[in-house]
């Protein structure tokens, strides 16, 4: 497992894109579109990143947290599982799984500090209750592989704003990142890629997906920061999240 991706639960759980781009029926009922679903996921990914920077955890913990977060919403609805609490709890659970435990009270403290929106706030007890629910939602599979070992880059970080980690093996995502970098820097890598004997069509498809993503959300650079997402306005996010709030 830890040494062999091919026998891991991560590998066994990889799914097709069309299984992921499905708005949960409950959310659909509330009028949430696929576009909004994706927006919320990007926004919440950024939220995890922001929060993680305050509690100071390593990159891999953040990546694991985001993977948990995205996995949860392939099964559960945003309506029933408030993404604001889920993100926080994913970071909490990932920190334990990666042997870098962050205390729940620290997370509660920093959320109060960095989030002006009261809906993000939670109590320790909320996190602990959600932790159990998440374990269940994740079907107790906690080991996640990442494309970082070959490549530690902003580009890789940005791939977590998509669902690529749920679809492709990490090494393919890493290769797609290398491919983009080599094309941008005008480096000749054809021979190098040929030697790898990987399916270049898949690598190129992932690369195109990443570039499309940048294009679509008008990301200005590979900063991997929330601020760089010019295409995502707060209004859009809030409108999407608002749809999920139960109506009186």
């Amino acid at each position: 497992m830890a040494a062999n991706f091919w026998t891991s639960s991560h590998y066994k759980q990889l799914v097709e894109q069309d299984k992921i781009d499905v708005v949960h029926p409950i959310d659909k009922e509330r009028g949430l579109t696929l576009e909004e679903f994706k927006l919320i996921k990007i926004h919440m990914t950024n939220h995890i990143w922001k929060l993680a920077q305050h509690v100071k955890v390593r990159q891999r913990v953040i990546a694991t947290a985001v993977t948990y977060f995205r996995r949860v919403y392939t099964r559960k609805s945003l309506t029933e599982y408030d993404p604001r609490l889920v993100t926080t709890t994913c970071l909490y659970l990932a920190s334990k799984a990666e042997e870098s435990t962050v205390q729940a009270r620290l997370l509660v403290f920093y959320i109060k500090k960095i989030c002006t929106d009261e809906k993000y706030r939670c109590e320790i007890k909320d996190i602990l209750e959600m932790e159990m629910k998440l374990l269940e939602a994740l079907d107790y599979y906690l080991v996640v592989f990442h494309p970082y070992r070959p490549l530690l880059q902003g580009l890789v970080n940005d791939t977590y704003k998509m669902d690529l980690i749920l679809i492709h093996p990490p090494y393919m995502i890493a290769l797609a990142c290398i491919y983009i970098a080599s094309v941008l820097k005008d480096k000749e890598t054809t021979a190098w890629f040929e030697e790898l004997r990987v399916d270049m069509n898949v690598v190129k498809n992932i690369a195109i997906e990443i570039l499309d993503f940048y294009d679509f959300y008008r990301v200005e650079s590979f900063k991997g920061m929330a601020e760089s997402f010019k295409g995502i306005s707060d209004e859009k996010i809030n409108a999407a999240l608002h749809k999920l709030t139960p109506k009186p």
Binding site: M1, A104, I124, Y140
Partner: peptide, 19 residues
Amino acid sequence: DGDGVSPTAIREIMLLREI
């Protein structure tokens, strides 16, 4: 102590679920 699922349990679940 408000620390949720014990790290001991997390380790057991996480490792034994894979192997």
